[in-house]
């Protein structure tokens, strides 16, 4: 699974390179969202195949990026070059999606999730002790 993820990251990177150099910026944006989600899955999975919450995190992040980027592009196109017919707190609707909506929403699955999942998934007490055992270090030494 890890090999496949790395390959998927490589393929999306290659396509991002091609779309960047041909100015297909909307396609680039969605490829970037996929690529970033894959990095999140890679960081969140364990061993070669243990996915745990990794897939969910990746999917949630991907949905947030795709929806927000689509909304940003839509509102940018609708009000291009003119003062928008309506604003949100004075902000251009597309700008409002960028800040604060995408800024705050993407923080949840990518950054806040790390603290929320740390004890249950990322590095449990048990996996820490197992790691120390594997490398021949006693937990007692750790607490000195």
């Amino acid at each position: 699974m890890r090999d496949n993820l790395i390959l998927a990251i490589g393929i999306t990177l290659f396509l991002m390179l091609v779309t960047a150099l041909t100015n297909l910026w909307q396609v680039f944006a969605y490829l970037m969202a996929i690529n970033l989600s894959l990095w999140l899955v890679l960081g969140a999975m364990k061993g070669e195949n243990e996915m745990g919450p990794a897939i969910w995190l990746g999917v949630i992040a991907l949905v947030i990026w795709v929806c927000c980027l689509s909304a940003i592009f839509y509102y940018w196109g609708v009000f291009k070059g003119e003062f928008p017919s309506y604003t949100i707190g004075g902000m251009h609707p597309g700008f409002f999606v960028l800040f604060p909506v995408m800024w705050l929403l993407s923080f949840i699955p990518v950054t806040l999730s790390y603290a929320l999942l740390f004890d249950k998934w990322i590095l449990t007490e048990e996996s820490w002790r197992e790691y120390l055992k594997k490398v021949g270090k006693s937990p007692e030494v750790e607490h000195e």
Partner: peptide, 11 residues
């Protein structure tokens, strides 16, 4: 807002 999260998750 995601960059630090990526750093912690990946490395």
């Amino acid at each position: 807002s995601v960059a630090f999260g990526f750093s912690w998750w990946i490395i």
